[in-house]
């Protein structure tokens, strides 16, 4: 029918046609900005001046050796990371329950997923009123039980935990749904065989369910690392990083460095540092997760 070269050319033509638009889009919106980001990280650009002075590795040196506030903000990110990490087993358990093991599971699934689809700013505003020291619901409840008020958002020692609570409320729904999808894709014959063999629910979960949903657990763990290190909207709307920078996260620091303190070069370097940290954490997590296997 066709000559060999014609077929090859046609194949190439189809390939190029199909890949042209995505390649252009990726180059335009990912690769080009990334290259610009890297280039700007070696300058002391203020965000407006037409001249961009090259400063070499000075920005990176400043972040690593001369910016204690950056490391404090990373510690705050750590609170979100640990909080979400500790909640993953609970999310797994809830997903296990929702997998046809409770009545009205469909209704509960919707309720679980609902916080995730609400706009984060709306969630943050809602929790501001919940945590407020003036007529806030939580403090009113404490007072009803003759207990002292708590500075949910005003005590530097508590504020990060309060914000982590909001983050867990908002994002655990998507984790649960991911786990649930993994459970539902499991072949039923394995579970049935284990039941015939007399395996308890815990043994079913530990020896059959868990190994089979490992890829999903890995995705959730990666989402946790990425989400915790990039958290921005909740602390920004609820406390703007306060009181006195106590709840500032790495991303808030980066944005303030760029827009409040007019140092775009340093902010770009911070974005690159964050990217590297996320990659390192993900690799470590992946290695630890696969240690047993």
């Amino acid at each position: 029918m066709f000559k060999n070269t014609d077929l090859k050319m046609q194949k190439n033509l189809v390939l190029v046609t199909f890949l042209f638009i995505p390649t252009i889009l990726i180059s335009l919106f990912m690769i080009y900005p990334l290259i610009r980001l890297v280039a700007l990280s070696f300058t002391s650009w203020d965000g407006l001046n037409p001249t961009k002075t090259f400063v070499g590795l000075q920005n990176f040196k400043k972040i690593i050796f001369d910016s204690p506030e950056v490391w404090v903000s990373l510690k705050n990110n750590g609170v979100y990371f640990v909080g979400h990490l500790l909640f993953i087993p609970i999310e797994l358990f809830l997903a296990f329950l929702l997998d046809q093991r409770v009545r009205f599971s469909k209704m509960f699934k919707t309720i679980t997923f609902l916080p995730y689809i609400i706009n984060t700013v709306a969630v943050a505003c809602m929790f501001i009123f919940l945590y407020s020291s003036q007529d806030g619901v939580l403090n009113s409840m404490l007072q009803f039980f003759h207990m002292d008020k708590i500075g949910w958002l005003s005590d530097p020692k508590i504020v990060n935990y309060s914000l982590t609570g909001v983050s867990i409320w908002k994002f655990s729904g998507i984790h649960i749904i991911l786990f649930l999808a993994a459970f539902q894709s499991l072949p039923t014959d394995m579970i049935e065989a284990s039941i015939i063999d007399g395996a308890s629910t815990f043994k079913q979960f530990y020896h059959i369910v868990l190994p089979n949903i490992k890829p999903v657990v890995e995705i959730v763990l990666f989402l946790n690392v990425r989400g915790a290190l990039q958290i921005f909207d909740i602390p920004y709307v609820m406390t703007s990083g306060g009181p006195n920078h106590a709840s500032e996260t790495f991303t808030i620091q980066t944005i303030n460095t760029a827009f409040q303190y007019q140092n775009f070069g340093l902010a770009c370097a911070m974005a690159i540092v964050l990217m590297i940290i996320i990659i390192i954490f993900s690799i470590i997590q992946k290695k630890l997760f696969n240690l047993k296997g």
Binding site: I128, S132, S133, Q134, G151, W152, S154, D155, P243
Partner: peptide
């Protein structure tokens, strides 16, 4: 400024 001035913000300040 009230019991816990760090616990409320601009919106509540205006409302008060």
């Amino acid at each position: 400024f009230g019991d816990d001035p760090l616990g409320y913000g601009w919106d509540q300040q205006r409302a008060m």
